[in-house]
Design a protein around this nucleic acid. Structure first.
Length: 184
DNA sequence: TAGGCCATCTGGTCCT
DNA sequence: AGGACCAGATGGCCTA
């Protein structure tokens, strides 16, 4: 598993996405049920199986048509499986993140973008809280506290964040929580 | 029904 | 060379 960050890559210009002839995705085993349940009644995985049966993105041509070699098709299928697993891992991470964000109604699943946005502001509010406490020189925090606070101030000065005050983060987080709970 | 969200497939690009 | 990563495309499901 590669976790190293890489510089942004330039994508190739849009391709003609017409389906190559002669590819028929065969039946695949049910992937590990790691994907979180969807909002609906059926699991995402189960629903996706129907979509996959429909051909997914590309409708394959007639089966058995000349074209790809069998080994090439096999590689593609293996690649698809790896990609599915990768996305399942990513979704598991999203689910884990959802579970550590407090004050979210359990019956309303956060979308991915909501999860990321809420998590970001939650972290900011926690950071601000810690810094506020440490700058107050609480017992046991006199060590790294002031340094942390200085670092934080430098970051704020460099980044010019609009919510520079600790209360700003907290307020933003609270507002977001409220708006998600209201379903807006 | 439209729009949002999502899973999956796919091919290009980068890295080991 | 092969795998990981990424983003576009597509179609299904759900909600307003």
């Amino acid at each position: 598993m590669k976790t190293k960050s890489r510089p942004p890559r330039r994508r190739a210009p849009p391709q003609n996405t017409e389906a190559p002839p002669g590819e028929q995705p065969p039946e695949r085993p049910q992937p590990a049920a790691g994907a979180p349940l969807a909002r609906g009644l059926r699991s995402r995985t189960a629903r996706a199986q129907g979509a996959r049966a429909e051909g997914g993105r590309r409708r394959p041509g007639p089966a058995g048509q000349a074209g790809r070699r069998e080994s090439s098709v096999q590689r593609r299928l293996e690649s698809n499986e790896r990609e599915r697993q990768r996305m399942h891992t990513l979704n598991n991470a999203f689910q884990a993140l959802r579970e550590v964000i407090p004050h979210v109604r359990a019956d309303k699943k956060l979308s991915k973008i909501e999860t990321l946005t809420l998590a970001k502001n939650y972290i900011k509010s926690l950071t601000a809280t810690i810094l506020t406490m440490s700058s107050g020189r609480l017992p046991g925090l006199e060590g790294p506290g002031p340094k942390l606070y200085q670092h934080y101030q430098q970051q704020q000065a460099a980044g010019a964040a609009p919510e520079a005050q600790p209360e700003g983060h907290l307020h933003k987080y609270s507002t977001q929580i409220h708006s998600f709970r209201e379903g807006s």
